[in-house]
Amino acid sequence: MKEPIQKVLRYMAIELAVYAALAIAYFCLVLRFLGTWLAGLFHEQRTYYVVASILLMVGQAIGLERLGTGLSYVIRRGKK
């Protein structure tokens, strides 16, 4: 059964706020620790760069999807 749209939007706003804080911390870490290494791979070993890029993107997608779903679950359970 579908939830009322107002309720869904309220949950989404809370999820977004919590997620934003976690995501900002995450991308600061990525830029700090992976930036130089990836730039080196890009210029010197293109094949490894391609593999690393795909793995990073797929890994990040799966990780962030789990994080989003987990947050949604926790926030809804906390509100009930």
Binding site: M12, E15, L16, Y19, A20, A23, I24, Y26, F27, V30, L31, L34, G35, L38, A39, Y49, V50, A52, S53, L56, M57, Q60, A61, L64, E65, G68, T69, S72
Partner: peptide, 19 residues
């Protein structure tokens, strides 16, 4: 491909896509 730009953009896109 600039994977660093893509990863940063994707942190926002991942939650947006679910919503």
């Amino acid at each position: 491909v600039d994977i660093l730009v893509a990863l940063v953009m994707h942190t926002g896109a991942a939650v947006g896509a679910q919503l």
